[in-house]
Design a protein around this nucleic acid. Structure first.
Lengths: 212, 212
DNA sequence: CCAAAACCTAGGGTTTACCCTAACCTATTC
DNA sequence: GAATAGGTTAGGGTAAACCCTAGGTTTTGG
């Protein structure tokens, strides 16, 4: 008896990819593909697959919430999260909400099939990559801060001027303070962003959307 | 005569998806799928498809540079960029570097086939979504066009290290050259980007998609 | 095949960024 | 109404970045 699998992902491309990869083994039968979560919910009412591959970032729904909802409604439906996000917060949320596996979108065919097999037999399955992300996170590695630091008024002003290529001296003139004051704000910025120099500061601030 | 298409994308999932979507029309024949750019380059030597679907973020290569390289080497190879990035800088870079189309990864089968058909007939093709991104960009910021400077091998290396917060001394050790040499490359980078210091350099390089 | 251009290399000297420390001011709290 | 905490202001000293110049090597083009 083949494992029946449903797939929900609003990227047609990914959907085709997943379905094709799974169609190459007799062990698995894809019984449904949906690009809209509404269609998926409707289909699950009638006929339930053993396993559901679930994308996190859906257009009109939140994959994380949907996961909780589905695993409540259908406790014996095994959910495999499929996502681009490799941040530990997403992984933890999905697992907490009932997903039994979490795969990144660069997963190979073999790993995909392994995950489905494991999950179907009631086990949890995480690829090594994903396991490492959780591990590093729980070890409290002082890593790239995903949260945007809270800046004071002066720090925001100084950051803006730095991004406009002004030197500390020029900024000091603009703000009517000493160069040393500007340097202090600058040091505090480095510290708040957890970076070592201007290069890291600008990179982080741009990624945080604080400057453009 | 079917249009021959090659696909380079290091995500097996996407690769399968694209190949499957294209296998459903007689008009198109997929003649090669590669997850590593080295394999792709090798294959193109022997047998050249009409159209190449090219991912931007490859693991071991820069899709933007690869695009320039390929469209120089094979002027009659039509390149379709496939990417997750919807930032105008990426789009512009790819088009500037010879890509004839730019598709996001949520593209439908129909749009994919349309793009390939148009591109094969020598036209350029951009989905409305992508066109709008470019339009908004050109309306929003009437800034002097930021053409991407052409960097040498050393300059690219140094730029990468700078963006990773290494100092000139540390970079010198990594490259087995004098600090003074690294400083020279650095000065040349500032000059090529037309900026005054590291802050401007990182900002410009990020906007140009050369670092992330 | 030779000249021109571009690239990699590096030194001397100046300016700027960064670290450690600390005073002062203003809220908030107990 | 002192104590605590966060913010703005600086100083002294060191490390790093930046400017100008230039020789040697590789690439390019007529």
């Amino acid at each position: 008896m083949a494992i029946s699998v449903g797939i929900l992902d609003d990227h047609e491309m990914i959907l085709e990819g997943l379905a094709t990869m799974l169609s190459q083994t007799q062990e698995i039968e894809v019984t449904g593909c949906w690009t809209h979560h509404a269609n998926c919910l409707e289909a699950l009412e009638k006929q339930r697959p053993n396993v559901l591959l679930l994308d996190i970032n859906l257009k009109n729904a939140n994959g994380i919430e949907l996961c909780a909802e589905l695993s409540n409604t259908y406790p014996d439906l095994q959910i495999v999260a499929v996502s681009n996000y490799n941040e530990s917060s997403f992984i933890k949320n999905m697992l907490r909400n009932g997903a039994k596996s979490y795969l990144l979108k660069n997963t190979s065919k073999d790993e995909l099939i392994t995950a489905i097999r494991k999950v179907h037999s009631g086990e949890r399955y995480l690829p090594r990559t994903v396991e490492n992300i959780l591990l590093e996170d729980s070890l409290g590695t002082p890593k790239p801060k995903t949260s945007i630091p809270k800046l004071t008024r002066r720090e925001k002003e100084v950051l803006q001027f730095i991004s406009e290529e002004y030197t500390n001296g020029e900024i000091a003139d603009k703000l009517f303070v000493s160069i040393k004051t500007v340097e202090s704000h600058r040091t505090n910025l480095l510290s708040k962003f957890g970076v070592k120099n201007t290069a890291g500061l600008i990179k982080s601030a741009m990624n945080a959307g604080l400057i453009s």
